[in-house]
Amino acid sequence: MGLNSEITNVKDGILKSDAVILPGVGSFSNAMSTLIKLDLVSVLRDVVLSSKPFMGICLGMHLLMSESYEFGHHKGLGLVNGTVLRFDGNTGSSGKRFKVPHVGWNKIYTVKNESHENKWNNSVLCGIDDGSFMYFVHSYMTKPENEDVQLSVTNYGDIEFCSSFQYGNLFACQFHPERSGPQGLRIYDNFAKMISGNFKDE
């Protein structure tokens, strides 16, 4: 991708960076208490409130929300209003059972806004085809309070959930772009262009 990256858990490293990616594997409460222990909560908030490109992936997306119901009820970073909820594999209008976790490839679709413009063009999803396959591994999903922040939605079982959202400089996705083949790599490519300021030139 041509990006110099560093895996860090220290304040200075994060503050000095041009952009931040918050990935995530693990459980919500563990991750939050680790962020609190490392004194990174306010740092991440500052980054998101600045104009630095920020990407949250999977659990990194969940952590941005105000609250989660993963193994109890926990407060998140609260940068985006909304909750994190578990898939209920047993209910639904069709009464059909579906497997949780949701593991595998699934399609992401655009959310049309009132003016029918494609919001993807101004985001890291620029150039990706509507209905592209991305790789998902999760049991929980985000539900932003303000549906306008949603960039893409995905269907699983008989549920439609938010598979990515954009809020200012903050992009977050439920799928794993780094494991989604050429289409996923395009997201990092766009992210790199945003960091270097070349995104709008295309």
Binding site: V25, S27, P101
Partner: peptide
């Protein structure tokens, strides 16, 4: 599973 997440 607790340390790395069930999906792992």
């Amino acid at each position: 599973a607790e340390k790395f997440g069930s999906s792992t």
